[in-house]
């Protein structure tokens, strides 16, 4: 009857990790920072046959900026094993993608951020985490590697449901790519209870190359984004109050929110309208302050 003791797989190179991942498939639970795996095991929700840790693969923890993307805009490359804390404290990120640094600083506690990784939080696809909605709005992508090669998956395509991603059983998420050229970016975390609570409604609003992208997190199984509603801002220099209100209301109508300990579906719908509007007002202020809006608009 005794519970089988899981195998501990600790490869020291990415190649070795990919080989193990391919061999074990879904038998092996991948351990990045291990916070989510730890919680699942403590709750009795996970009894892995094998644990595959990426901790000893030094080549998976890095932060680099490249100017080589197609548009000539800088591209932030984040190694999957980069911790939240490292991202939040990186001068590179603070300078070039301040919204990333400030949003990651809102996740859980310093203890969790010392342990949890950027790759891990995306692969977990937990609806109430902060980073997925922001990375979605920033138009980020992830690199998925397998022995056969690699593919680039947008965050939008990566997170397909509740704790569910489009990663294949032989793939490892190795890198996150965040494009630059951002004219303004805002993340608002609305908590309905303690300051330490997870979000009841999270709104990320980003303008890049004149296009608006609003992603609402923590309200449904996966981040919520409606390009046709965001298109209302197309061709506008800024986002005036009326437009912000309209986009907020349309988002509230378009989303089917869930109910949980942090708020009912009915309440969430109300807050989505308010918080999307406020995010757009904040974004507008930011664009005006930096002059980004008028410069970018052609």
């Amino acid at each position: 009857m005794a519970r089988p003791i899981p195998a501990w797989l600790a490869p020291t190179s990415l190649e070795e990790a990919l080989e193990l991942r391919a061999r074990y498939g879904e038998e092996a639970t991948v351990v990045a920072g291990g916070t989510f795996v730890g919680i699942l095991i403590n709750q009795g929700l996970l009894q892995p046959a094998a644990l595959l840790t990426l901790r000893q693969i030094a080549e998976l923890a890095y932060l680099r900026v490249e100017d080589a993307s197609a548009s000539g805009k800088p591209l932030l490359r984040i190694g999957a094993m980069t911790t939240h804390r490292a991202l939040e404290r990186s001068p590179l990120v603070q300078r070039g993608w301040p919204v990333l640094a400030s949003t990651f600083a809102l996740v859980a506690s310093p203890r969790v951020r010392n342990q949890a990784t950027v790759g891990g939080v995306l692969a977990d696809a937990d609806y109430a985490s902060d980073p997925p909605a922001l990375l979605h709005a920033l138009g980020a992508s992830v690199v998925a590697r397998s022995p056969q090669g690699q593919r680039l998956i947008s965050v939008e395509e990566l997170i397909v449901g509740h704790y569910e991603t489009s990663l294949r059983p032989d793939e490892l998420l190795t890198e996150i790519q965040v494009p630059g050229g951002i004219e303004g970016a805002v993340y608002r975390k609305f908590r309905s209870r303690s300051s330490e609570d997870r979000p009841c409604v999270a709104v990320a609003a980003v303008r890049r190359e004149g296009r608006l992208r609003v992603t609402v997190g923590a309200v449904a199984e996966r981040p919520q984004y409606f390009p046709e509603i965001c298109a209302l801002a197309e061709g506008q220099a800024g986002i005036d109050a009326e437009l912000a209100r309209e986009i907020g209301e349309r988002y509230a109508a378009a989303i089917e929110p869930l109910s949980d300990a942090r708020g009912s579906a009915h309440y969430r719908r109300r807050v989505i309208a308010v918080e999307v509007r406020r995010a757009l007002e904040d974004l507008h202020q930011q664009i005006i302050a930096t002059g980004g809006g008028s410069q970018r608009h052609v």
């Binding site: 209870r193 303690s194 300051s195 330490e196 609570d197 997870r198 949980d260 300990a261």
Partner: peptide, 11 residues
């Protein structure tokens, strides 16, 4: 303690 909050320092 995720679904049942108690007051924290910053509250």
């Amino acid at each position: 303690l995720s679904d049942y909050n108690i007051p924290a320092a910053d509250d």
